[in-house]
């Protein structure tokens, strides 16, 4: 019943988060987080280290079990997405994998295509994979070993992986952690252009207020609780930033104005 109510309240919602709390090992990582991301929107989560940003993303994606609250994606409970899984592209912050794992970019992307036989080389999947790689300007990486990629290249491959099944919702966890500034610029531009061209809805984590001002339709300030939410120019004020970042707010503020 609750889901029906929320759907009529938020007709354009792709993602609906209600009173979400996560407790791990007796420690509350975040609590009572509620927000809505509408279709075609870019929503950016900001907050200091340890604010619970990554855990919030993981809980939304049903990778962690919340202590309370609910998550609805495309109108379905996130635990029962069924074939809607294909409509979500996820890019983790760091790819936890063994760098010596002998697997090529082509093989990794092939894993995402459920109907493509993993052992048969055929033209169909390769073409699909090349199309996804072209979106991130990574066609030349197709036969490289994943372990040999630079940080920026690996991120583009992960983005191609997320885009492969042509998702409608893209969830990106701090996509530029560990990439140099020029690399950062192009990566956000890439996401921004993709979002416009493909009518994507984007939820991402960022630590960069410049990026937030430039690209976000909605900013979510997180520090254990949601401390502000709305259009960046309306809600990012000295007081909300100080609440979110504590004494470091001044430094953050200063850097970007």
């Amino acid at each position: 019943m609750k889901a029906d109510n929320s759907e009529s309240l938020y007709p354009n919602a792709v993602l609906l988060v209600q009173d979400l709390s996560l407790v791990l090992g007796g420690q509350t990582l975040f609590e009572e987080v509620s927000f809505v991301v509408d279709e075609g929107e870019i929503a950016i989560i900001i907050g200091p280290n340890g604010a619970g940003k990554t855990m919030l993303i993981k809980t939304i994606l049903n990778l962690r079990q919340p202590a309370a609250g609910s998550v609805t994606i495309f109108g379905r409970d996130h635990r029962q997405l069924g074939d809607f899984h294909d409509r979500i592209g996820y890019m983790p912050q760091r790819l936890d994998f063994d760098r010596t794992f002998p697997i090529t970019v082509y093989e990794v992307l092939l894993l995402k295509l459920k109907d493509a036989g993993f052992w048969l080389r055929s033209a169909g999947p390769r073409e699909k994979i090349l199309t996804a790689l072209a979106k991130v300007r990574g066609e030349n990486l197709i036969d490289r070993r994943v372990g040999q990629l630079s940080g920026g290249e690996l991120q583009r491959i992960l983005l191609a992986y997320a885009l492969l099944t042509e998702p409608e919702l893209l969830v990106l966890d701090e996509p530029v952690a560990g990439v140099d500034v020029t690399g950062e610029e192009t990566f956000y531009e890439l996401i921004h252009n993709l979002q416009k061209n493909e009518q994507l809805t984007v939820l991402m984590v960022s630590h960069d207020l410049d990026v937030v001002y430039r690209y976000a339709d909605q900013v979510l300030c997180l520090n254990r609780r949601l401390l502000c939410r709305g259009a960046p120019r309306q809600v990012l004020r000295e007081d909300t930033l100080e609440q979110t970042y504590g004494s470091y707010a001044g430094a953050y503020h200063h850097n970007h104005h």
Binding site: L61, N62, E107, K114, F118
Partner: peptide, 22 residues
């Protein structure tokens, strides 16, 4: 092992990515 090799490789490569795909 061979019928489900793609799935097993995916889990070995990254559990979270596999889980998000259902």
């Amino acid at each position: 092992l061979f019928m489900r090799s793609g799935l097993l490789v995916k889990i070995a490569f990254n559990r979270d990515l596999a889980a998000v795909e259902g």
